[in-house]
Design a protein around this nucleic acid. Structure first.
Lengths: 327, 327
DNA sequence: ATGAAAGCGCTAACAA
DNA sequence: TTGTTAGCGCTTTCAT
């Protein structure tokens, strides 16, 4: 392996100069820089990252802990984060907590061990409730999930508003008995549920909601039961794409007509939601913007550790489609 | 920060002993081990990974470079790889090459810089054609994509067989003019195409196939054109889940009846394929097994660098569904 | 603007 | 079985 002394010898300079050149330090004569660059190329030199990290204390690495990598929402966000990170010369350690607080804790420990510059995280509700960002040796940016009083930078959807508008839309379309199925492991489901409750109350309708584990299988089971009722509810609404999938599966299995017998609506503009017949009304989340913004917040926090905590709240876009057509 | 000397002092032993205990070396007296463990806990000591890596030359890290993180097939594989890796005490560096050979090369360089123990990779065709595993300072295990003469451990589907059986199934269902759309950036599309050609030849049918960029948008465009023909083809077959999605979108937009006017079939048992009406015939890939096997191969290769190259070929499962019902 | 040299925290030879 | 110590490759004072 070629090391920095080899380059230094070849270029006829000191190792310090080589280090300065490859780290892009200012105040280097053009001639020396050129000599070093030539030697680096000639020898195919690559700095040893472990040595560099040990000595400098910096890692240029950041962590991204998503709660479920199979959820396309997080996949999209991850892609956006990764893209921007590499454009900024940072590496990303991507981890999948699988909605499991134990795994989540394990990965956060790991981030500490890895001495990352910062972490982007979509926490479980359990962690969120007890989160003390000051306890971590790195800055934290939350995505998708965050409570009103959480003391950390965050990028989230206006979940209350989204839940409200989705419900309001259903009401406008003539639905009254609207059942809301929401994931209870994160904070988004409950927040969207609050929006649902407010919209129902504003219309003087009786709410009915079911908190469930955020997996399509579970949503499907619960929805199946709901679909055996007589009379049927007017609508089933979901707090996420995963829950919506379960509902759609249950509806298909039960053979009820949408929107004739029942309306359905949910979150996340996934390809399949516009592929099925009828296509399904959803609130679209700006996944790219969420990921990019989270990374930007993190980089800014790294640069200025003391600046005030910021929360970026993005608005969902209601895509009204066939599944909620006027009855 | 508490370091190894602090622990050594507190336990009244040498740093070497502490190092031995925390690295799980054999031949340590129970009493010393106990003393060290107590001190470690009391001080909350965590080894500095950079120092450890610099000194030992090992990183206990492996790389996973997928060609498209948004493709659910790779998401599933990634999850499986990550799960097993962490069970084995290894960290995973997950990167998304986005089907771009430049990014792919960049990430492979990065893996070298990170000094990973090994890399799991789904290469673009461009890379695969010129791949010299011996050129990399780490072992390589290919997933999903590999050619007959590739000189590296690999876990792949029997793509020829899968393409053959999917086509054969369509023929059995009465289709004759079967158009095959396949992704041309990886090796799987072309291999499945070969299976398609063989099945068509065996039935004395004239093949017609379109190589396309592996994105649903592109598949949709090409399929739309195909659907304007008069008469329509008997069937449209896809070499991947992404291509199948594009076909399904085009079919819906064109308003043609499936399987009445045209049959469709493809790959990957994604949730939406059984959600649409009619549900869609696919070849299911054993994603979990692919990921787990790839990791196993890699760990075995790390343990025994000189063992013979192995290729694990898994069989796809034909899920015959409504979209290819007998005409 | 450049060089000399100390030392980041740990592991592994070697010694005892 | 345990301790002593050199040194992994780099960055960063400090000196010039």
């Amino acid at each position: 392996m070629v090391k920095i002394v080899d380059v230094a010898k070849r270029a006829g300079v000191s190792t310090a100069s080589v280090s300065r050149v490859i780290s892009g330090h200012p105040g280097i004569s053009d001639e020396l820089r050129e000599r070093v660059n030539v030697a680096v190329k000639a020898l195919g030199y690559r700095p040893d990252l472990a040595a560099r990290r040990l000595r400098s204390g910096r890692t240029d690495t950041l962590g991204l802990i998503v709660s479920d990598i199979r959820n396309p929402f997080f996949t999209e966000v991850s892609r956006a984060v990764e893209d921007v990170a590499y454009q900024n010369g940072m590496r990303v350690l991507l981890c999948n907590a699988d909605e499991d607080p134990d795994k989540e804790a394990f990965y956060l420990e790991m981030m500490r061990d890895e001495n990352v510059s910062g972490v982007i995280l979509s926490p479980t509700l359990a962690l969120l409730k007890s989160l003390r960002p000051a306890n971590y040796p790195f800055p934290l940016v939350l995505v998708d999930r965050c409570e009103r009083d959480t003391d950390a930078d965050a990028v989230v959807l206006d979940n209350f508003d989204a839940g409200y508008r989705l419900t309001e839309h259903l009401i406008t379309q003539g639905c009254q008995r609207i059942v809301f199925l929401y994931g209870s492991v994160g904070s988004t489901g409950p927040q969207r549920h609050q929006g649902y409750l407010a919209a129902m109350a504003a219309a003087n309708l009786a709410p009915e909601a079911e908190p469930i584990a955020p997996r399509s299988e579970r949503a499907r089971e619960v929805a199946s039961l709901l679909l055996q009722r007589n009379p049927l509810p007017d609508a089933l609404a979901a707090s996420s794409g995963l829950v919506l999938l379960g509902i759609a599966e249950a509806v298909k299995a039960a053979g009820v007509k949408v929107p004739g017998d029942i309306a359905i609506a949910g979150f996340d503009d996934l390809p399949w939601t516009s592929l099925v017949t009828p296509d399904i009304t959803v609130i679209r989340q700006p996944t790219n913007e969420i990921g990019q913004t989270a990374l930007r917040l993190l980089l800014e926090r790294v640069a200025q550790p003391e600046r005030a905590v910021r929360r970026v709240v993005l608005r969902g876009e209601l895509l009204a489609r066939g599944s909620t057509q006027l009855r």
